[in-house]
Amino acid sequence: MIRYLFVRVLGALPTLLAIVTISFFLIRFAPGGPFDQARALPADVVANLNAAYGLDRPLWAQYATYLDDLAHGDFGPSFRYKDFSVTELIREGFPVSATLGAIAIALALAGGVGVGVVAALYRGRWIDHATVGLSVVAIAVPSFVLLPALGLLFGIELHWLPVAGWDPTSIRDYVLPVVTLCLPPLAYIARLTRASMIEVMRSAYVRTAFAKGLPMRTIVLRHALRPALIPVASYLAPAVAMTMTGSLVVETIAGLPGIGRYLVQGALNRDYTLVLGMVIVYSTLLISMGLVVDVLIAVLDPRVRLQA
């Protein structure tokens, strides 16, 4: 097990390096640059800026410098957020996005599995149809519609919750963004759980469990639930990485100081270092969640062996 984890973590480093390399050259080859504005700057100003950020050096030399800084834990200075390093930006914003994301995913997992199991057990009844129908709505409605609608209802009409704003100590500030973030994965997990639970309930070993005369509760919780969760576990890796790196829409609308906006803004502004920093955060999360999920699946199904 220890050996397995060690080999997997070691194996992730070349993957990360490949991602960083590809992203580095991709964003550099995109037309435009960080200092382009509607009105072109004087040529000497641009030259000074380029020299200050090292953009006048050959691309491979910049790449080498970037990797060297990275190896020392330095993501470099942001091109747009003057006086901030990318490390600072991410260090401040990531906890906000990660906290909201983690809460949202935890709720989505608990709620989605519960709803999915109930729908599967009452297959074809109204509660099942309601689940399937509502889950399509929850997946399809975009967050830029859902969050303002929730804000309108619970904030402006009912005065129960704040529409926007951020005070880390106030749970009330969390509610609307967390609900908005958690609904789509909740619906998706409910659908996954429902489908695999229906499949498992038809399996030969569940029939055996029924033939043994066991009560429904035991059959569902002990015999059926664990194998039914395997597809959910596989979905979890991208879902966690996605949700914990924040959402541009949700964080912008709710006025949250997370990192959700950095990737899109960074790319649009050609803020080279910020984009790369976000790519690294996202892919690190994705790769480590992939590892967690593989271990989780081995726990759910003893036939799976972790072999490095």
Partner: peptide, 8 residues
């Protein structure tokens, strides 16, 4: 082959 619960 399939009549026993695989994870128990």
């Amino acid at each position: 082959q399939t009549a026993l619960t695989p994870h128990l």
